[in-house]
Structure formats: C-alpha cells, structure tokens
C-alpha cells in the first residue's frame, strides 16, 4: 500500500513539474514572438511593462480576464463553451509522455509516439466546434478549413515518423531518444525531418498554414466570436501545441536530452558529475526546444500564407508521395544495412 501512495505522490509531483514547465514557457514565448516579430519588421515591440517589456504577456492576460465574456444569443451554448476546452486540453495531454530528460517524464508508455499523434489530433474538434457553434459564417469557414487541413496533413505527419521508427525499433519516447546516442536521426532521416516539420506547422495552424484564422479573409476565423477567458484559452492552446510540436521534433530527430555533438561533451567535462547526470539533460533539451520555438516565430514572419488550393496540393501531391518514398528508402537502407 505504501508503494502505491508513493507512486501516486511521485506521479503528481512529476505532473506538477512538467505542467509548470509547459505553462511557464507560454508567456515567455508570447514575449519572444512579439519581440522577434518587431525586430523583423524594424519595430521595438513591447517596451514599457517591466524590463524589456517582459511583463507584457502578464498584462495581456490581466486585460483579457477583465473583459466581458460574450456568448452570442444564436450560438449553440453548450458547444460554444466546450470548444475552447476541447482545443486546450488535448494540447496539454501530449505532455504526459514527453520526456524532458531521462528522469523527468510523467510516464513512459510503450506506444508513446502513437499516443501523442492520437491525442494531438483531437485538438481540431475545438476549432470545428467553435466555428460551427458560433453561428457565424466566417467562424464556420475557419472551422471547416481547420478540419480539412488537419485531415490532409495528419497523414504525411504520421508517415514521416515511420522512418524514425524503422531506425529506433520502438514507439516509446525514451527508447527513441536512447537509440540516437551514436547518431541523431536528422542525419539518416533528413527527408523525414523536413516532411515532419512542414506537417507540424500545418497541424499547429501556424503561418504559412494559418488558413483557419486568416485575418484578411475570415477576420479571425473560428474564434471570431470569442472574448475574454475563452479567447485566451484558444491562444494558450495554440502556443502549447507549438511547444509540444517543438518537443516532438527535438525528440524524434535531434536526440532529445542528449548533449550537442562536439561541444556538448567538452562543456560537460568541466561540470561536476551530479550536474551532468541530473541537470544537463533538461538543459540540453530546453536549449534545442527553444531553438525550434524561435524557428516557429521566424518562419511566421518570413513566409506569406498559402492559398487554399496550394495548401491542398502541397499536402496531397507533394508531402504524401515524398513521405511514402521516405518510408520505402528507410526500409531499404535498414534491410540492406547501408545506414
């Protein structure tokens, strides 16, 4: 019985720590996004709240919380209220299996990566429900676009992972990272990485794939009727999904918590063993994730949005055949032992 309570206590502790990391990252990311976008457009960005405008996200949240929460009279009340939660909760659930380090993971299930794909594919219900229940034609169009986009890009997303799985021979996140000890999968799986990256951008609805909320055509798409805390939840969901996508990229292709090649071992040589064992993996992981978070922002302010037909032909006519090709090549290499 004591073992059970210890297990529950330890799990709760891990959940709190992981969620704290995930949710603290969001305001930081919002700040980075505003600062980087300002730099790219030769502006200053937030300046006045706190040093370097660092407190700006908190001020934004306070402002959002104080706004009136409006529910349109013609809306489907129940679905309208449920939609932001349906967008936010699946994004957060993916962190149950994401390892931040060899010791910092809520649970390592042997189907880890399939679980992440399954759970993250549920986020689209939030967007479709929001779009439909708002009873607004722009919102409906946004919701429909997100549904079509999600279905089209989930297939290349899933197929691009197969190459990694052929090399790692396991679906467990920990085993996938451990099997990259000699060589990160970015090298043998470069094509898979590019496909996964593009599909992940589409799945998180980030530019150049933000058609569900295209401001110029749809005002704000699926969340046009939302205000106050419900709008904040959609916002939060987008950033948490982006964080989990960055974590996945790092775990699948960039060796997770393993140190950077060449400079990593040199730096770790100077540090005491206990730090190297317990702290450095987390640090390496966070550094790599931070790079991809920056990359998300960088791409957003560099590329224009795709047109709807371009989006569809990219997904079905380019990514899908390439993903199949990647599976074929990886399997051939593995069979012949070339790589």
């Amino acid at each position: 019985m004591e073992n059970v309570s210890l297990f529950i206590l330890l799990s709760l502790l891990k959940i709190v720590v992981v969620l704290a990391i995930a949710l603290t990252a969001v305001p930081v990311m919002v700040w980075v996004e505003r600062k980087v976008s300002a730099r790219i457009q030769n502006r200053h960005g937030p300046l006045y709240v706190g040093p370097f405008g660092l407190m700006q996200p908190l001020a934004d949240v306070a402002k959002l919380l104080l706004k009136e929460d409006i529910i349109p009279t013609e809306a489907d009340q129940v679905l309208y209220v449920l939609a932001p939660l349906m967008a936010f909760v699946p994004a957060l659930l993916t962190f149950a299996v994401i390892p931040f380090g060899p010791y910092l993971q809520i649970t390592d299930i042997n189907i880890g990566i399939v679980y992440v794909l399954a759970v993250s594919s549920l986020g689209v219900y939030g967007l479709v429900m929001a779009g439909w229940s708002s009873n607004n034609k722009y919102a409906l169009l946004g919701g429909l676009r997100s549904a079509a986009q999600m279905i089209s890009y989930e297939i290349p997303l899933g197929l691009s992972i197969i190459g990694v799985l052929i090399y790692s021979r396991s679906l467990s996140m920990v085993k996938i990272v451990e099997s990259q000890a000699d060589l990160w999968f970015i090298v043998p799986q470069f094509l898979g990485f590019v496909l996964f990256l593009v599909a992940a951008f589409a799945e998180t609805n980030r530019l150049p794939f933000d058609l569900p909320e295209a401001e110029q055509e749809l005002i704000a798409g699926y969340h046009v009727e939302y205000s106050s805390l419900k709008f904040a939840l959609f916002f939060l969901a987008e950033y948490v999904a982006m964080l989990s996508a960055s974590c996945l990229i790092v775990i699948l292709f960039f060796g997770g918590w393993l140190p950077l090649p060449f400079i990593g071992p040199v730096i770790e040589g100077f540090l005491p063993e206990i730090v190297v064992l317990y702290l450095m993996p987390l640090l390496w992981f966070l550094i790599k994730v931070a790079f991809f978070m920056f990359f998300f922002v960088w791409v957003r302010w560099t590329f224009p949005r795709l047109r709807y037909d371009q989006l569809m032909s990219l997904g079905w006519k380019v990514l899908l055949p390439l993903a199949l090709l990647n599976v074929f090549i990886s399997a051939t290499f593995r069979m012949t032992g070339l790589f």
């Binding site: 042997n110 794909l117 399954a118 594919s121 479709v128 779009g131």
Partner: peptide, 28 residues
C-alpha cells in the same frame, strides 16, 4: 491492447469523425 486503443483514437476520432463533422457542418 494499448496499441489498438491508440489507433482507435487516431483513426476513428482523429480522422474519420473529423471528416464526418466536416461534411455535416458544410451541408449545414
């Protein structure tokens, strides 16, 4: 059968029902 469970969610809820929802919401 965890693998089947994950595939059940991935295929049925993650893809097929989204497609149904898309069509039904589109037909209004």
């Amino acid at each position: 059968a965890e693998f089947l469970a994950a595939i059940q969610i991935l295929v049925y809820t993650g893809a097929i029902m989204v497609l149904y929802l898309f069509v039904i919401a589109l037909l209004n």
